[in-house]
Design a protein around this nucleic acid. Sequence first.
DNA 1: TATTTTTTTATCGATGTCGTCCATTATTTC
DNA 2: GAAATAATGGACGACATCGATAAAAAAATA
Lengths: 151, 151
Amino acid sequence: MDDIDKKIVKELQNNARASLKNIAETAYLSSPAVSARIEKLEREKIITGYHAAVDSRKLGYHITAFVSLDVSSADKIRFYEDMESIPNVLECNCVTGEYSMLVKVAFPSTMELDLFIGQLQKYGKTSTQIVFSTPVGPRDMDVMAEIGEKE
Amino acid sequence: MDDIDKKIVKELQNNARASLKNIAETAYLSSPAVSARIEKLEREKIITGYHAAVDSRKLGYHITAFVSLDVSSADKIRFYEDMESIPNVLECNCVTGEYSMLVKVAFPSTMELDLFIGQLQKYGKTSTQIVFSTPVGPRDMDVMAEIGEKE
DNA sequence: TATTTTTTTATCGATGTCGTCCATTATTTC
DNA sequence: GAAATAATGGACGACATCGATAAAAAAATA
């Protein structure tokens, strides 16, 4: 993971559909070289995938929320399977603090969100924060930053 | 946004670097037709971008956290600019509840996270949840789901 | 409702660009 | 200095794009 790799990753973060030729130009490299480096980054699982970002509102998901809830260790495996199976769950994090889980979800309306939260009650008490707006991000991590002790 | 568009978006969510030819095959369409549809989806800002997903750990970001904090309306604009300028801020949400903001961040270690939280104190009281693990996601929204009243 | 007109959206074939492969050369690394 | 790794350049094949055309859908008129 040298500076050239970082430049390539940054380019792919900005535009995952960029052509090898274009990436090669910005990285001052030939396209076969870029191709080989990208394959290596994928093999090493530094790059884990390429995703189109979509406007959730325009897809009908008007409500985004973070649901905190307390899940006992015994229930966690079942809970994870549950979260995995519900497509509205965008992210499910195990966290420190009063609530053990923090789940990001998207629903068409508060009605569906309410139904979802109802389903969660069996696992423990919940606390929900509905998103008004997202002034920053979601955005990609800074690859170029100087960080000591990688991996 | 018909079923063909949905199929195309789904494909680009799974693999944003897929060739037009491949997308065309899965959508039972010609590549120029797919190209035109993708351009339209981009023009309408349904697709907002294409991003490479990277393993944060392998980039040296070992600590991910959600920081809640209370920011007064008067300070918000300044706060947003602040969050925008810090690359470690992956997501900054304005939410309901006791804390007005929910910020997702990534840092190399708890030390840098602590420094960041220190910087935030001037805006109001904070509460931090460090992520142990992310059993689900981050993943893409379900485009194929049947939702009434889009846009 | 039927028919025409307009608009939209598709396909096809041609052209130019792009990605990939191979052989060779350069650069590291030990 | 030898071995391994990584880059380049040219050739080939695949792919994306463009223009022309045709089909389908939508809108308008009778």
